[in-house]
Design a protein around this nucleic acid. Structure first.
Lengths: 153, 153
DNA sequence: TTTGATAATGCAACAAAATTGCAATAATTT
DNA sequence: AAATTATTGCAATTTTGTTGCATTATCAAA
């Protein structure tokens, strides 16, 4: 059976960083925010355990850089991950958007287990280049991971 | 202006490996196939330059492992990447499926540049676990990256 | 409250993956 | 054929993530 977990101060601190973040965090951002408070290795281990517990998920962006974000509806062992990750090409933040993605029919023989979609472009806070600024709605940032605007049902 | 390129034997060899592959290649697979023929660092540099030229694209899978595959319709600087990447959880191969993905409406303020979708599950060549085998169509593998079955138009 | 089992941590060492500087080599252009 | 400079190989370095082990701290049970 699975090994028993303990609540520790370090785990709490890591969780706090996530709770206060409005978007996904790169490992180095986490490390920076936690610097001095715990060992580098501990952060890695806590992230691994959070991933296994379905508390956090790992998001490698299209360049291979690794981000982490709080999970919404995941359980230990299986991540519910059928949603969008939006990456702003300007400010580089990664935002989880809680909308299911529908996948077009795959060729015969493929059996889908799960889907994750990576959209990149300009986020509401960053101006598009060249073209004049498009008015942005500030509220949209609230769909960011971990903040649920409308209850997902 | 951008630095001028040269055609070299090494680049050709790397390109040949891609041309003969039926799915995306991990860096280490490339290295293995090219072992003895050129330096490790050279492979990295060639891949980078191919990526910039829009000849190849980089596909980090959901665990962060990095794959590379031939581009279909990309130009230097901008990758046309609105297609699916399918990863078989059994054999671990990554197959590019040349079908556009449609993205549901994003919240106000987001401007999409491009989309890539990562689907995982069982490929036509691998049996699903537990359940009895589902008949697989062999032909589907031909949609694999670099082999165009029907002209994409 | 104390005690014991063991999960979690810190530290040092290690391993893997990717990058950089630089001298030597080889593709192009003239 | 010579000059220019992109490309390569090599060694060293950086970045990223992991492992082993002694120590510490959590939690449950006495």
């Amino acid at each position: 059976m699975s090994r028993q977990k303990r609540n520790t101060k370090t785990k709490e601190m890591v969780m706090d960083v996530f709770a206060n973040a409005s978007s996904a965090l790169r490992y180095d951002e986490l490390e920076q925010q936690l610097s001095g408070q715990m060992n580098r290795v501990t952060i890695y281990r806590i992230l691994q355990s959070f991933c296994n517990d379905g508390k956090v998920h790992k998001i490698p962006d299209r360049d291979g850089k690794v981000y982490y974000a709080l999970c919404q509806d995941c359980e230990a062992g299986h991540h519910h991950d059928n949603h969008l990750h939006f990456r702003c090409v300007k400010c580089e933040s990664i935002i989880c958007i809680d909308k299911p993605v529908n996948i077009p029919g795959l060729p015969r023989g493929y059996r889908v287990q799960d889907v994750s979609c990576f959209v990149s472009g300009y986020c509401p806070n960053c101006p598009s280049p060249i073209h004049e600024n498009i008015p942005t709605g500030r509220a949209v940032h609230d769909v960011a991971c971990g903040r649920r605007v409308r209850p997902t049902r």
